[in-house]
Amino acid sequence: MSTTVSTPDADERCAHCGSRIFEHDPICVRDCGEGCGSPAYFCNYACLAVHVDENDLTAGDACEWSPGE
């Protein structure tokens, strides 16, 4: 599997709040499971965190760790 890195357009909008990402501290996220899909851009970590929480993206994932396993 290979990944292509590219710079988003200057007026790319945040996937959560719609702000222009380059007016803040942008973050690019890509779900690289099967199919990898397009990257999503967030203007900052707060918008990314809210997006993760609202969509329950940590449920059943590596964020649930049991030291006995």
Rank of each mutant, 00 (worst) to 15 (best):
residue 66 S to C: 12
residue 59 A to M: 05
residue 59 A to G: 06
residue 34 E to I: 12
residue 38 S to N: 10
residue 26 P to D: 02
residue 31 D to T: 07
residue 39 P to A: 08
residue 49 A to Q: 09
residue 22 F to Y: 10
residue 29 V to G: 04
residue 64 E to C: 13
residue 52 V to E: 04
residue 55 N to Q: 05
residue 62 A to C: 12
residue 45 Y to Q: 12
residue 46 A to W: 08
residue 47 C to K: 02
residue 43 C to V: 03
residue 53 D to A: 12
residue 24 H to G: 00
residue 32 C to Q: 09
residue 54 E to Q: 04
residue 25 D to H: 05
residue 57 L to G: 04
residue 44 N to A: 05
residue 50 V to W: 02
residue 47 C to N: 05
residue 53 D to K: 13
residue 24 H to N: 00
residue 36 C to I: 12
residue 22 F to S: 03
residue 45 Y to W: 11
residue 55 N to R: 03
residue 37 G to L: 06
residue 53 D to C: 02
residue 50 V to I: 12
residue 38 S to R: 11
residue 67 P to Y: 07
residue 33 G to S: 09
residue 43 C to L: 04
residue 44 N to D: 10
residue 60 G to R: 00
residue 66 S to Q: 09
residue 29 V to C: 08
residue 42 F to Y: 04
residue 49 A to L: 06
residue 36 C to P: 14
residue 35 G to H: 05
residue 58 T to D: 12
residue 29 V to M: 05
residue 53 D to N: 07
residue 47 C to I: 01
residue 43 C to I: 06
residue 56 D to C: 08
residue 29 V to P: 03
residue 26 P to T: 02
residue 49 A to G: 06
residue 60 G to E: 03
residue 41 Y to L: 09
residue 60 G to C: 01
residue 26 P to I: 00
residue 39 P to V: 11
residue 67 P to W: 07
residue 30 R to H: 04
residue 25 D to T: 02
residue 50 V to R: 13
residue 43 C to K: 01
residue 33 G to I: 03
residue 28 C to G: 15
residue 53 D to M: 10
residue 42 F to A: 03
residue 56 D to H: 11
residue 30 R to K: 11
residue 22 F to D: 04
residue 60 G to F: 01
residue 22 F to G: 01
residue 30 R to S: 08
residue 34 E to Y: 08
residue 33 G to L: 02
residue 58 T to N: 12
residue 47 C to Q: 07
residue 60 G to L: 00
residue 58 T to E: 15
residue 45 Y to P: 10
residue 27 I to S: 00
residue 28 C to Q: 11
residue 39 P to I: 12
residue 37 G to I: 08
residue 55 N to E: 08
residue 55 N to F: 01
residue 36 C to L: 11
residue 52 V to W: 13
residue 36 C to E: 15
residue 22 F to A: 00
residue 40 A to F: 10
residue 22 F to C: 02
residue 26 P to K: 01
residue 56 D to M: 05
residue 64 E to G: 13
residue 50 V to Y: 09
residue 61 D to G: 15
residue 54 E to N: 05
residue 36 C to F: 15
residue 63 C to T: 15
residue 56 D to N: 14
residue 52 V to S: 04
residue 58 T to Q: 07
residue 50 V to T: 15
residue 33 G to Q: 03
residue 28 C to E: 14
residue 34 E to N: 08
residue 46 A to M: 07
residue 50 V to F: 04
residue 54 E to M: 02
residue 45 Y to V: 14
residue 67 P to V: 14
residue 53 D to E: 05
residue 67 P to C: 06
